[in-house]
């Protein structure tokens, strides 16, 4: 991947916001990819969790905001428990989701869910899914 670094790509404000929301310092990441190895959802993701950490380290938020990785994250915390640098990656994913959701944007449309699905889904699935994927 060729990266052209301009004053637009690196936005210090977004970097600080990510730190503030997640409480985590992505600069601690040493790119070992343990998180990607642990992640059950990588097949669905356009960037692996390791790559998301890399993009975040460089403050490349344009690229990050177009990624589906944090929408496909299941908050399973398998990455978090194994990161050798002690980074809570699940919190970084949540902070990336929240930056979009707080602009009143939904990732899934509750009204588009088939009625039969809603009838059979356990309540915890609906509450969890709506909290993670809708604003």
């Amino acid at each position: 991947m060729t990266l052209t670094i301009t004053d637009q790509t690196i936005t210090l404000k977004s970097f600080e916001k990510l730190k503030e929301l997640s409480g985590e310092n992505v600069k601690l990441c040493m790119q070992c990819a343990t998180c990607s190895g642990m992640c059950p959802m990588t097949a669905e993701m356009d960037h692996s969790p390791r790559k998301v950490m890399h993009l975040a380290q460089f403050g490349l938020f344009d690229k990050l905001s177009a990624s589906n990785t944090f929408w496909k994250c299941a908050s399973c915390h398998a990455c978090t428990v194994k990161c050798p640098r002690g980074i809570d990656i699940a919190k970084v994913m949540e902070a990336l989701r929240q930056q979009v959701l707080r602009k009143s944007k939904n990732y899934i449309e509750p009204s588009a869910l088939p009625a039969e699905r809603i009838v059979e889904l356990p309540q915890i699935a609906l509450v969890a899914g709506f909290r993670k994927l809708t604003s």
Partner: peptide, 18 residues
Amino acid sequence: KCCGSYQILNGEDGAQST
């Protein structure tokens, strides 16, 4: 391994493969 959790709401493929 995770069962896919709430990702069952976000298209079925991810949760089905997990």
